[in-house]
Design a binder for these strands. Sequence first.
DNA 1: GAGTGGTCTAGACCACTTG
DNA 2: AAGTGGTCTAGACCACTCC
Lengths: 242, 242
Amino acid sequence: MNLNKYNQIYQSLSSDIVEGHYKAGETLPSEHKLLRLFGVSRETVRKALSLLQENGYIQKMKGKGSVVIYNPSTNLTVSHLTSFKEVQMQQTKDYTTQVYSLDEIPAGEVPHVQSALDVEAGTLLWQLIRQRKYEGKTHIVDMDYLIHDMMPGLTEDIARGSIYEYIEERLGHSISYSHKEITFNPMTALDIELFGPVTPPYTANVKSVVHLSDATPFQYNVSKHLASEFKFIDFSRRFTGE
Amino acid sequence: MNLNKYNQIYQSLSSDIVEGHYKAGETLPSEHKLLRLFGVSRETVRKALSLLQENGYIQKMKGKGSVVIYNPSTNLTVSHLTSFKEVQMQQTKDYTTQVYSLDEIPAGEVPHVQSALDVEAGTLLWQLIRQRKYEGKTHIVDMDYLIHDMMPGLTEDIARGSIYEYIEERLGHSISYSHKEITFNPMTALDIELFGPVTPPYTANVKSVVHLSDATPFQYNVSKHLASEFKFIDFSRRFTGE
DNA sequence: GAGTGGTCTAGACCACTTG
DNA sequence: AAGTGGTCTAGACCACTCC
């Protein structure tokens, strides 16, 4: 999939960088060389390079070239998630997923979820609570609300695996973007039940509303992490237009 | 500044969206209409639209059009910072900035800073500690390390204002990207001195290494927020190349 | 079938960096 | 002066959506 040319070039160059064929501080071949190398036009090469820059692999400099800034040490530190991409990786990691509950409730019972998902009070939602365990200890608790009609066949078995995979591969929907919010909250009684007693009794909560590529909101997720273990890593750029 | 065409179109459309001329759910004029409207080529319109999509204003849909997804309610919630862009806004907000200390120290004294800034142990650094106060109470503490030789003229007065402004306007450097890391930590003795006694005695720490557009690291910043007040808001997309 | 966005091309001119 | 990336154009063909 994704058979377009600039994506192939992006894949090729990014894996070269990750594998160390181009190291931090080195310069990639010039656009002119790359377009001959890959046999494409210049704009196509430039699209690939723009992606590399957006995602923190290179820094383009007028008159100089494209310098590699990717540093495995700053990126391998992804100890406990979580950029949007890793939300899935988390599910394929060493964690064991245990479904605590899976219920159907009307959206009106959870007004903040109802407004975030932009549905009527009567709309049925799946309410799903899962524990992510590692060596017997719960490290993450995920609380999810999903629109029932969009995935009527949801079961505990599916919830134990990857919901995203189910959405994308079984239902043919495509996940596209999300709004995310990170806060630090005292544990609730339910949290204590799910995590057990821990110090400090606080969680880092990553709340996100996930949208499909047709802009439909489909998932309201709160991912609770033990405060003492939480680490969020981000790469960001300035002046992408403003 | 930024007089290129696609940026002008981006500015024009994004302010139309923010001001409500195009509302969430509505569709922007088609690319064909926009290119006639602005009198530019299609690729130029598309660059502007791509920026709008990256920054969470619109969702482009093949065969349909560009739908506005910007929702002031999710974006105005920027109560206590802080995407990379807001790191500066924070400094022009209602906060009063108070310089707690400004010292010169060799990088070797702070090894984690030394390696992050990629300098020799003997390199002189500015160590700057500031309190951000609102109505007499400290809400944010910023601890900064800056390379001395890059800004030999740093004073408490400048530190009280915007360091970024000083860097960009006075020194002519251009800030480009940063790696950021969010964690929750118990307060140190110094934190308690700076914030006063608060409950819980935890801070949300946003650590970032800021780079100039020539890829030089120039600032190591730890922004400490009262855990109970902290909120980080983010918009992110999937499949920007991977 | 008409309209939409997605990809790609070949070429142009410019601004910046380095010798 | 030669090489680099930044912007912009005019046109082509494709895939998707909606009527």
